[in-house]
Design a protein around this nucleic acid. Sequence first.
DNA 1: TCCTTATTGCAACTGACTTTCAAATTATAG
DNA 2: CTATAATTTGAAAGTCAGTTGCAATAAGGA
Lengths: 154, 154
Amino acid sequence: MPLPETEIPGRLQAELMSRGLRMTRQRRTILSVVETAKQHLDASQLLRRARRLDPQIDRVTVYRTLGLLKRHGLIDELDLMHMQGEKHFYERRPQRDHIHMACLRCGKITEFESDLFDRLKGQIQRDCRFHIVVTRLEIGGYCAQCRSTDQAQD
Amino acid sequence: MPLPETEIPGRLQAELMSRGLRMTRQRRTILSVVETAKQHLDASQLLRRARRLDPQIDRVTVYRTLGLLKRHGLIDELDLMHMQGEKHFYERRPQRDHIHMACLRCGKITEFESDLFDRLKGQIQRDCRFHIVVTRLEIGGYCAQCRSTDQAQD
DNA sequence: TCCTTATTGCAACTGACTTTCAAATTATAG
DNA sequence: CTATAATTTGAAAGTCAGTTGCAATAAGGA
Ligand SMILES: [Mn+2]
Ligand SMILES: [Mn+2]
Ligand SMILES: [Zn+2]
Ligand SMILES: [Zn+2]
């Protein structure tokens, strides 16, 4: 299922401006791509989409803007089990953290929110006296569909 | 705290041989390095240690052996929040999964086992009908020591 | 509008990992 | 023990994702 669309458009831009950062044409473009993405995108997909809105935008500007958003905790970086090379994927940081499941057969990514996960984070903060800034729970395995379709698997 | 040392030495080698793989001098060396490691090592650290035992061992052989161990589910690959470049870290797959916490200030890696985590995995298998093969829960934040030492953080 | 400073684009660079392929080594069969 | 077939290795070149240096450009406050 796609991301819950409870986000205010232009929110990322407002966040960055409120932090005193300069709002350039390139940044506005990249932020709008990040905000309107319905799936997890990697840097090159992000660049391609940004270039459809502003053809002369450069690769480095995408990387620099992603770095900026990461540092400000406005996006999360995902590995998605590095199933196709070593690239990373990005999504707006959601109000509530979720888990990513990657099917090792069909490649489908499933998202899952869980109270147990929220409680686990609480336990870690308390028991380990560790102040959590970012979490990433990624699970590799076989989705319901692939389990029924295929007989021989792990 | 380091990894629980409840592992039989030579276990990786026995596992691979029982799966019908050829046991070469290079593989034995790399397996012994993986087995005796007390921390999470990246490929180049692994190579350096392997070379102390067998100086002519090559980088590619390390990568190929890591790939082999991954495919057979005998080691886990970690990102550790990619705090120093894009490299990956490796550890013997433990009997019970654990969580990795990375301190964004001092870089310390802490491991944590949790019943809540085990239950969360059970919930995912059941509720999402997803057959879990590998999990990776990594948390970035500030460790107890850095929280008390430093005032301004996050 | 001017001025300072942040940001951009280009090109070159880096680091981590992969591919290619001939030579060496392994396990197995004879 | 060989001989043999199949696997594995090392060296070199290549790829891919991301970074750095720096001069030109643009943002935003005075
Ligand atoms: Mn990664
Ligand atoms: Mn997501
Ligand atoms: Zn699937
Ligand atoms: Zn710390």
